[in-house]
Design a protein around this nucleic acid. Structure first.
Length: 579
RNA sequence: UGGGGUGUGGUGUAAUUGGCAACACGACGGAUUCUGAUUCCGUUAUUCUAGGUUCAAGUCCUAGCACCCCAGCCA
C-alpha cells in the first residue's frame, strides 16, 4: 500500500477546486493544494508502512455538556481524515467520571455528531465498555511493580507532588509489596473504603519536570452511580489511565486531541509501552477560538443556568444545538471547519467567517421571499381598492429551475421604514418625497405625499403605481400587500457579546459584563408575503434585502410559522451610511 | 536555565523541506445587477527581534523577546 503511494505521481499544480467524490477512492497524496501538519504526519506514516497504511480516528467527548462549534472542528477533522484516507471513524464517550456525566448529554451528542455528518457505522463505544479490561491491566502493572495503592488523601498528595520548579517526594506507600497492592486494589473495588481514602497510582518518577509523570492517579474511589455501568463499580479509572488504552483497544491509529494534552503524551505513551499494547500516535492541534462568543463549558453552563439565554439550544449559543436552531446548516459548518484549517498556533477566528460560511451556503439553497420587518404603509392611489394584481417573482434569481411564484399586489402595501427617507442623501437609492423606486418583481411607485402624526412621525405614504418592467430606476425595494400579509413573529438574533474577546475583562469584572443587550429583538408585527404561511418548520428562506431566516421548529404553528434570523445579508449601504 | 508548545498581511492557513512569500476570507476601489445581495475585475507583507552561515534564509546556526499549557482523586 505504501509502495503504491510512492509510485503515484504527484501533480505539480493541483487544480484549486478539488473533487470531493475523489476523496475516498484515491490514495493519499498531494491531492490538495496544501496539506496541514496532521495530513503530513499521516502521509509519512503511510509511506513508512506504519499500521499497514491504515487510518482510524475517533471523536472522544465526555458526556458532561453539549457540543459546541469548537467540537465541530474536532469532529470534522477526525471524520474528515478517516474519510479522506478511506479509513474509519469511531464515536467514543469518555465516561470515566460518573458524578459529572449524564445520559441526556450522551443522547444530544450522538444526535449532533450525526447531524454534522459524522459517520461511525457500528462503532459507537464508551470507555466504560473497557472497565474490566482496564482493571486487568492495572493488576498487570501492579505485578510488574509499576503501580501501587496509595493512602494519601488529596491534600497530602498535593504536598507530596512538589511544585512546577521543585521535585516531589515519594509517597510513603510507594514500596508496598505486590501482594499487598493486589489485596488493597481488590478491596477498593469491593467497596471496602470510602471515597478519597486511597488511589491506585502509576509508579513513574516523582522528580519528573512533567508533573503528569509524578506518579499519576490511575484509579480513584467514587461510590457513585454510573449512567451505563450502574453500581457495578465504585472505583473509576482516570482520564490518563483510560484514554490511550481505549484508543488502543479500538485500533485507533492517530489519536487527535487539543494542545493542552501535549503534556500528557508522555503518560499516554508510558501506559501503552508498559502494557505492551497497540500504540496509537497522539497528535495535538490548537482548539478553535471565536470572537464575540465564549466556548468554555463552564461559561456556557453559566449562561444557561443563570438564564442569560433561553437554553442550550438558544440560537445565540455557539453550541451545535444553538447553531441548528439559528438555521445554520451542517454543510456551512463543515465548510467553515475546512476553511479555518488546522495548526498548532493558538489563533482566534473572526465570527464573520462563520457568518460568511452560512451566507455562502444559504445563498445557494434558500428560496427567496419578501418580508417587511418594520412596516410603513404606502397607499397607491391609482389602484382601485378592490383590485388584486398578481405579479410573478423568481424563487431564486440565479436558479430559474427553482421556478416562480405569484404574489398579490393591492392598493395598500407595506414597505420597510428604512426604505423611505424624507431628507435623503444623494446616494440614497430608495424612496423619497417626489421620487420613485421599483417594487421588487412588480412595477414602479412614486411618493407624492407624506402623512405624519401629531408628533411628526411618518405614518403613511401616498403615491401611484406604474406597471412598468422595462424602465430603469436606481432602487428596488421589497414589499408586501397589506390585505394579504401574514403577520407573525420574527426574531432577530445578533452576536451574544458586544466585544471581540468577552474574556478580556478588567479586574473584578466578568465576561457577562460584555453581554450584548441587543442580541435578540423580537418583532411581532412583521408583514410577510402570504406564501410564507405554508413554510414548514425547518424551512429556510432569504428574505430579500434582509437576511436568511429559519422557520423555528419549536415555536412554529401550522399556518403561523415563527422565523429566526440566521444571519443578515451583507449590506454595503449600511456600512457606507455608518461612516 | 522547572518542563512542554507556538510566533508568516486585518484574519486564518501554505510555501515542492535553502530557490521569485501562495491560497482563502475580510477591507478598499471599480464593473454588472429588478435584492445596495449574488457574480466579476483590481489593490492589499521590513515572515517576532538582533546577529551569523550562504550566490540565495520564512526555512539552517547563535542569542534574545512575546504568548499559550502544566502543581484535579476533571477531561
Amino acid at each position: 500500500m505504501a509502495a503504491a503511494d510512492d509510485a503515484s505521481p504527484s501533480p505539480k499544480k493541483p487544480s484549486p477546486k478539488k473533487n470531493p467524490a475523489d476523496k475516498a477512492a484515491e490514495p493519499a497524496g498531494s491531492r490538495t493544494p496544501s496539506r496541514n501538519f496532521i495530513q503530513q504526519i499521516i502521509d509519512a506514516d503511510r509511506a513508512a508502512g506504519k499500521n499497514d497504511g491504515r487510518v482510524h480516528t475517533r471523536f472522544p467527548p465526555e458526556p458532561n455538556g453539549y457540543l459546541h462549534i469548537g467540537h465541530a472542528k474536532s469532529i470534522c477533522l477526525n471524520f474528515g481524515l478517516a474519510n479522506e484516507y478511506g479509513g474509519k471513524f469511531n464515536l467514543r464517550f469518555d465516561d470515566t467520571n460518573p458524578v459529572k456525566e449524564e445520559q441526556e448529554y450522551v443522547d444530544a451528542i450522538i444526535d449532533d455528531v450525526h447531524w454534522l455528518g459524522g459517520e461511525w457505522e457500528d462503532r459507537l463505544f464508551h470507555a466504560s465498555d473497557y472497565f474490566e479490561q482496564l482493571y486487568e491491566w492495572a493488576v498487570q502493572l501492579i505485578k510488574a511493580g509499576k503501580a501501587y495503592v496509595c493512602d494519601l488523601n488529596a491534600e497530602q498528595m498535593r504536598e507530596y507532588r512538589g511544585t512546577l520548579k521543585e521535585p516531589g517526594k515519594n509517597s510513603p506507600h510507594r514500596d508496598r509489596t505486590v501482594d499487598e497492592n493486589l489485596k488493597l486494589l481488590e478491596e477498593m473495588r469491593a467497596g471496602k473504603y470510602p471515597d478519597g481514602s486511597r488511589t491506585l497510582r502509576a509508579k513513574i518518577d516523582m522528580a519528573s519536570p512533567n508533573l503528569n509523570m509524578r506518579d499519576p492517579v490511575m484509579y480513584r474511589i467514587k461510590h457513585a452511580h454510573h449512567q451505563r455501568t450502574g453500581d457495578a463499580w465504585c472505583i473509576y479509572p482516570s482520564y490518563d489511565y483510560t484514554h490511550g488504552q481505549s484508543d488502543s483497544i479500538e485500533g485507533i491509529t492517530h489519536s487527535i486531541c487539543t494542545l493542552e494534552f501535549e503534556n500528557h503524551r508522555p503518560l499516554y505513551d508510558w501506559f501503552c509501552r508498559e502494557l505492551g499494547i497497540h500504540h496509537p500516535q497522539q497528535i495535538e492541534f490548537a482548539r478553535l477560538n471565536l470572537t464575540y462568543t465564549v466556548m468554555s463549558k463552564r461559561k456556557l453552563l453559566e449562561l444557561v443556568r443563570d438564564r442569560h439565554v433561553a437554553g442550550w439550544d438558544d440560537p445565540r449559543m455557539p453550541t451545535i444545538r444553538g447553531l441548528r436552531r439559528r438555521g445554520f446548516t451542517a454543510e456551512a459548518i463543515r465548510a467553515f471547519c475546512e476553511r479555518i484549517g488546522v495548526a498548532k498556533f493558538n489563533s482566534t477566528i473572526d465570527m464573520g467567517w462563520l457568518e460568511d460560511a452560512v451566507r455562502e451556503d444559504l445563498n445557494e439553497r434558500a428560496p427567496r421571499a419578501m418580508a417587511v420587518l418594520r412596516p410603513l404603509k404606502v397607499v397607491l392611489t391609482n389602484v382601485p381598492a378592490d383590485k388584486t394584481i398578481m405579479v410573478e417573482a423568481p424563487n431564486h434569481p440565479q436558479k430559474p429551475e427553482l421556478g416562480t411564484r405569484q404574489i398579490p399586489l393591492t392598493r395598500e402595501v407595506y414597505i420597510e421604514q428604512d426604505d423611505f427617507m424624507e431628507d435623503a442623501p444623494k446616494k440614497f437609492f430608495r424612496l423619497k418625497p417626489g421620487g420613485e423606486v421599483r417594487l421588487r418583481a412588480a412595477g414602479i411607485i412614486s411618493c407624492d405625499e407624506v402623512i405624519k402624526d401629531a408628533a411628526g412621525n411618518v405614518t403613511e405614504l401616498r403615491g401611484t403605481f406604474d406597471d412598468d418592467h422595462s424602465r430603469k430606476v436606481k432602487g428596488t425595494i421589497h414589499w408586501v400587500s397589506a390585505k394579504h400579509a401574514l403577520t407573525t413573529d420574527v426574531r432577530l438574533y445578533d452576536r451574544l457579546f458586544n466585544v471581540p474577546d468577552p474574556d478580556d475583562v478588567p479586574e473584578g469584572g466578568t465576561f457577562l459584563d460584555h453581554l450584548n443587550p441587543d442580541s435578540i429583538a423580537v418583532i411581532q408585527d412583521a408583514k410577510l408575503e402570504p406564501s410564507l404561511a405554508n413554510a414548514a418548520p425547518g424551512d429556510q428562506f432569504q428574505f430579500e434585502r434582509v437576511g436568511y431566516f429559519y422557520a423555528d421548529p419549536v415555536d412554529s404553528q401550522p399556518g403561523q410559522p415563527v422565523f429566526n434570523r440566521t444571519v443578515t445579508l451583507r449590506d454595503s449601504w449600511a456600512k457606507a451610511a455608518g461612516k
